[in-house]
Design a protein around this nucleic acid. Structure first.
Lengths: 129, 129
DNA sequence: CTTGACCTTCCCATTGTGGCAATATCCATC
DNA sequence: GATGGATATTGCCACAATGGGAAGGTCAAG
């Protein structure tokens, strides 16, 4: 199957499939005309990558996860460790965004939001620190 | 004052000060030797930018906020609107990350994390969809 | 043989920041 | 006046992940 169908079947854009190949996440055979050729196994790999991306894993993590997945003898401890480290990173980031939102919502609550120029949001941004 | 001192005083790296200038967030005078020269007002602008960045505002939003800040006649409604839109964006992003973390933590909870190869995390990533 | 759909590679843009290199300038010390 | 260290200048490259588009090759149907 060619890259177009692999894309449809896996839900990964052709552009990204080529990119993943370029950075060594997956290797594709080539047919006589130079077209990339994919087998069922490759579709599974692409879907694996997509699911991991959906969980926010960076591609470098995915590279390791793929290695662990391919290695039938791998210890699940490594996978769990990677996953929990990522959970922590996600939560740290989420907390950070939430905290920004809280601060800003608080400032906005005290802003009249009418045609008067007075605004605590701008005043806070302009504070000296 | 030169860029180094402006950087120290504002907490914005010299690199970023030049970048902000390049994209038109601020303009610096030049002295005879070609060095950028900053006044107190510029320090205030740089701090404003830094505070807005700390709240996660993208630079394009900051460009608008600066315009509103400089315009003494502006209506606070515009500022509030921008701020609340950003709050919504932050919360959407935070929810998304939180949701990823929840899913992954759930999967990890069912992973033995020992030396057995069995692992629900990999199984989920490898699911057919 | 043409047309259109599909494939190829290569380059550019994004967002915000950092780093490095070559070069110029300032200032203080000898 | 010369030397050196700190500071300045510009410009290019890099990151992560993705999209867009151009210029060209290939294939299958009509």
């Amino acid at each position: 199957m060619n890259i177009g169908q692999a894309s449809t079947r896996s839900g990964v854009s052709a552009k990204m499939i080529r990119h993943y190949e370029a950075i060594g996440l997956l290797a594709a055979l080539r047919s006589a005309n130079g077209y990339r050729v994919y087998a069922e196994r490759d579709i599974a790999v692409l879907r694996f990558i997509r699911h991991a991306r959906d969980l926010g894993f960076p591609l470098e993590d995915i590279r390791r996860l793929l290695a662990l997945w391919r290695d039938r003898e791998r210890a699940s401890a490594e996978v769990k460790h990677l996953a929990l480290a990522h959970v922590a990173a996600l939560e740290t980031k989420a907390d950070s965004l939430r905290s920004m939102a809280d601060s800003l919502r608080h400032l906005a609550a005290h802003c009249h939001g009418d045609d008067r120029p007075d605004c605590p949001i701008l005043e806070d941004l302009a504070r000296k620190e």
